[in-house]
Computed example of a mutant assay.
Amino acid sequence: MPGGRLTHQDRRHIGAGLAEGLGYAEIARRIDRPTSTVSREVARNGGPERYRVDHAHLATERRARRRGRIPRLDPATPFDAYGRDPDAVRDFTEQLAALMVRTGVPRMAARVLARLITDDSGSLTSADLVERLRVSPASVSLAVAYLEGLEVIRRERRPGHRREQYVIDDGVWLRAWMTSAQAHARWAETAQQGVDVLDAATPAGARLSHMSEFFATLSDDMSGGSGAVDDALTVLAALRHAGAPLPAGQLANALGWPLDRVTEALRCAAPDRLTPAQLRALEHPAT
């Protein structure tokens, strides 16, 4: 019987035999391999119910490369239409999902989102995800529900297709950013309610007051609201319009702002934002 590694064609025969319900011995005879070779191959790659030809071949090539046995993919496993190594794409997708998990995204939701991001179509059905992730439909459904709650994916039924597809588009990150900003605003509002209940003069009330200020500032900055940077630009516009330096109190009166708001805006535009060369040029302007 021939030795050596199983080829992609061998694995196609194994997959076809399993689909027909053949035993390992019969499949082994068809490809002229020992029965033990077939049984190990199937057991190593998910068992008879979950064996996938392409996945098994790529996984074997990856293990072989890690052991230094071969430099690249077997020619039987071609690169895709863009010249990309499918094995490298899969490894990156797993790396991306792992990063999401470390930042707090549930593991299955991270795997689903990473698959959608790295798929050229940006659109996969539940069946696609079940096959590629090798998980149950229930696991995919829970992950999709979580991601829909974050508004990073949406369901879509396209003309001519019976199945729903889960879609990620180019506007997803802006929506996620704004959703996060709104969540921070809710944290600020809730913390402020706690200040009213517990009294800002108490340790717990002061803690909640700081919490409210932090999340309010974060929400303003993320949503482009009137944060300190926006105030600094308003003060700069006022000074430019006046054409001369103005005291903080006069600026406050002109803008109709509390003095501490003007002071904070001026602090954001402090000279430490300028380089030494810029400061020297402003102190001694060229004639």
Rank of each mutant, 00 (worst) to 15 (best):
F79S: 06
T7K: 06
S141D: 15
A188T: 04
A114C: 06
I117L: 10
G104D: 01
G160S: 04
P48T: 08
R154Y: 12
A110Q: 03
G171Y: 04
G83C: 05
I70Y: 04
H184P: 04
R261D: 00
T125K: 00
P271F: 06
D221T: 12
E151K: 13
H57W: 04
E213K: 10
P71I: 05
I168Q: 02
R186N: 15
Q95C: 05
T37H: 02
D260H: 10
G205V: 09
L6N: 00
A16C: 13
Q9G: 15
D54N: 05
G3M: 11
D272M: 11
P276D: 12
A270Y: 05
L208M: 13
D230E: 10
R107F: 02
D230W: 08
L208Y: 09
A145I: 10
A64F: 03
M211Q: 11
S126N: 14
V195A: 09
R175A: 09
L58K: 08
L142H: 08
G160Y: 12
D170H: 10
S36N: 13
I117R: 08
L6G: 07
E148L: 13
L113N: 06
A286N: 13
I153R: 06
P247C: 12
V195W: 00
P78F: 06
M211K: 11
A252N: 01
L279I: 10
A97T: 07
A88P: 04
Q182K: 13
L124W: 01
A200I: 11
R5C: 04
R72Q: 08
L208Q: 14
H284A: 09
G21E: 01
Q192H: 12
A98R: 03
A200L: 14
S121C: 03
A114F: 01
T93W: 06
T7Y: 05
M211H: 13
E283W: 07
W173H: 15
S121Q: 05
I153Y: 10
V235D: 01
P106G: 15
V167P: 07
Q250N: 14
L124F: 02
R107L: 14
T202R: 11
A98T: 05
R33L: 07
E283D: 13
S209V: 04
G21R: 01
P258R: 13
Q165C: 12
I14K: 00
G205Y: 02
D128S: 02
G225V: 04
L233P: 06
R154W: 15
W257T: 00
V101F: 03
I14H: 01
R30I: 15
L147Y: 03
R50H: 08
R132H: 10
L147E: 14
A110G: 07
